[in-house]
Write a protein that binds this DNA or RNA. Structure first.
Lengths: 318, 318
DNA sequence: ATGAAAGCGCTAACAA
DNA sequence: TTGTTAGCGCTTTCAT
């Protein structure tokens, strides 16, 4: 319509320095009028990349992941990217399918939190070989040579325990999640290290629960048996189980019992008094994961494991 | 490598009836060995469609949306589709950008829950004109001629109120969300309709709160002023605000006060006793939205508004 | 400053 | 049953 070649138009539209001002103006005007939209499929084909990242998580409806995803989405949007969300429903097979989908969609990069049963991470490494960077977050493989961003399990545990110690608690009940999850073990190890520091001045009991209900049960039992003066809850799931019993028995917090948790903060502030917690923020982790991805995509980067800080958020529960 | 043309390979790979068994076999074998992956960009360009849906929500980190998204993802995955997630952070401008992104990515269809400030839905209708079906869900425009799937606001409200009436409650405090939100108004209207049915046998107070904190305040005030024997909470947000005060004042549920809410169920079961609620399931809405999308894509369908049922889930709170 | 032309990897109509 | 070919809409090199 403007009597110029396709290449001129293409260049004009992307503000190429070779094109004269007047031409650019004309092209832009007509594009506006015609409501021209570049065909993303063609661009992707031609440039062999797309402005999309894949995100593979065990489940979106999780205390932690949706805040991670939300924060990540905010970040990538600024850079013109979008997020393709895939759930593995904690099934390694579906996880593998999802990975394949990402590969086939030729996403620019993949964020993945592995399932609790994922054993073989070779498929992930293979995708990386094809120049699709992978950032593992939260639930990361033990394997060394991959990019990971994690919450500070040890630090968070330490902060939570220290808060209890400061308040001179003597009999701590520590409740952890599924014993098979690496996160449980990391936090358990950190907990025991803190206890070791204190020597025999503090006694403690440890139990595991793989659901809120199990946590309620474990807590109820411990209440009778070990009569703790403080409870350490490894996760929101554990905390909700404990808090339900506390409401049921009308236990006075913090007079009868102190509570401290590790959480991203949503659940703790539902209660009165609000529960003190060591923060593990999905929000912050999202930002970190993104910046790590950008570095990887730039290409000049070593594989490494990054950790976000944790802080203790005070509540009236200790 | 196999001494055959590209088209033969293409057809063999997609099990075209014209191709002989042996050829297919050979092609598949070699494809396996070579780890051939079809180039999605090229397919999209050629076929002019992609196996992706856009999802535009005010925020992922919301009581309701992440369960909707989670359920929708499960569903679309079965059909080989993926979900592109875009947040509008309740900003109509960003919402518009997101819509544009979807259009440019030429998604197969869009699921959208509009922001509380979205006034102009013409841009959405325009996208529909380009044969990208749009399913509005949850927060839908008042405009008639578009496809909507919603939770049953009236029914849920009715069920919740009926539960209170059955228990002979006489002084109901009804707490609603942001007065500007259509959802608040729908539920309010339904509530008043139920009250009208009862004539003067029941007295009630109505208040609005646009945050959990505001709900706490409104509830505290009402407690002193109107001394209700039951509280109706329009949403999880309201419920959490109310429950915090209840814990603070150690109010006995249901002896001192009955509580009923409208919720998808996660929050109500955090408390003891568990809170009775009329269910508005993001999970079910996801399934419905998807099936509606498929119908629209098939092309033979009228514009319509669909609603998912609600049921009362009993708790110990009434 | 602009144009011509090749080609990204695939599909499908048509030919053989 | 298989091959030839055009073309999807764009980017980019090379020529002018």
């Amino acid at each position: 319509m403007l009597n110029m070649s396709i290449s001129t138009v293409s260049r004009a539209l992307k503000d190429h320095p070779d094109i004269s001002k007047e031409t650019k103006e004309k092209v832009r005007e007509l594009a506006e009028i015609l409501e021209y939209e570049p065909n993303t499929y063609a661009i992707n084909l031609r440039t062999n990349n797309s402005k999309e990242f894949g995100v593979i998580v065990p489940a979106i409806s999780n205390y932690f992941y949706h805040s991670f995803i939300s924060s990540l989405e905010e970040e990538v949007r600024r850079y013109g990217y979008s997020l393709i969300i895939l759930q593995s429903v904690d099934d390694p097979e579906i996880e593998l399918e999802n990975l394949k989908r990402c590969k086939q969609s030729r996403v620019a990069g993949i964020f993945v939190s592995i399932t609790s049963k994922t054993e073989d991470i070779k498929p992930f490494l293979k995708v990386e070989d094809q120049d699709i960077p992978i950032i593992f977050f939260d639930k990361v493989p033990a394997f060394e040579a991959c990019n990971k961003v994690c919450v500070a399990d040890s630090l968070a545990t330490q902060l939570a325990v220290e808060a209890l110690i400061t308040k001179k608690k003597k009999k701590i009940l520590a409740l952890f999640g599924d014993i098979n999850l690496s996160i449980s073990n990391k936090r358990l190890a950190a907990f025991e290290k803190e206890m070791a520091k204190m020597g025999s001045t503090i006694s403690y009991t440890i139990d595991f629960a793989n659901s809120a209900k199990a946590a309620s049960l474990a807590f109820t039992k411990a209440l009778e048996e070990s009569k703790p003066d403080a409870v350490f809850c490894m996760s929101d799931e554990i905390l909700t189980g404990v808090m339900k019993v506390i409401q049921k028995l009308a236990i006075k917090i913090p007079n009868d019992l102190s509570i401290v948790a590790i959480s991203d903060g949503f659940i703790p502030q539902l209660y009165f008094p609000e529960i003190a917690y060591a923060e593990t923020s999905g929000f912050k982790l999202g930002k970190l994961a993104f910046s790590r991805m950008m570095t990887c995509m730039a290409g000049n980067s070593f594989v490494q494991e990054l950790t976000i800080d944790s802080v203790l958020i005070n509540g009236g529960s200790i």
